[in-house]
Design a protein around this nucleic acid. Sequence first.
DNA 1: CATCATTTGTTCGTATGTATC
DNA 2: CGATACATACGAACAAATGAT
Lengths: 90, 90
Amino acid sequence: MTEGAIDHGSPVPVYRQIAARIIADIERGTLAVNRKIPSESDMVQEYGVARETARNAVRFLRDEGYVFTVPHRGTYVTDRTVEGPSGSGG
Amino acid sequence: MTEGAIDHGSPVPVYRQIAARIIADIERGTLAVNRKIPSESDMVQEYGVARETARNAVRFLRDEGYVFTVPHRGTYVTDRTVEGPSGSGG
DNA sequence: CATCATTTGTTCGTATGTATC
DNA sequence: CGATACATACGAACAAATGAT
């Protein structure tokens, strides 16, 4: 199947659908730590969405701690094996 | 007169207004086949727009078949007297 | 080959206007 | 009205390739 298309009729926002794909790639290891995820433009072309939507997906991933963005460079996969919101404890 | 200014208040997007001028120059012969059209920087200074807007104009012209771009060289006027998507008919 | 100027390519940041749900 | 989404537009920075010298 591969079901590679975005479902605009779904109750799940498009940006969340895109974010879910990226997360899946991260969990799966397809997108390794410190590797660059697709650029906003890539997502625009890949999914046929507006840049605004691609940005929302990236912002969501950032808020969730999956990635971090370097201005004018790109967005990369966060190393969650060491980093944490409250230090090394836990 | 020369009315050389871009109308930001027009419902016609700025990039379309710029593209229209280039097209007019091509139709008129001011910009001959295989001649280089103004660079993105030229348009930025000439029309006082952002590079993004200049690029949108070029992309539009490319999509319409009026020009073709050579990376790091420039964008040139297409020879439409011979080239065509469905042959020489037309 | 090295340097400089030109030009397009890439990428993220920000804002406005419009439309839909 | 708020969230989502698309189109347009300006701003900023860095990358890569080309061409002249």
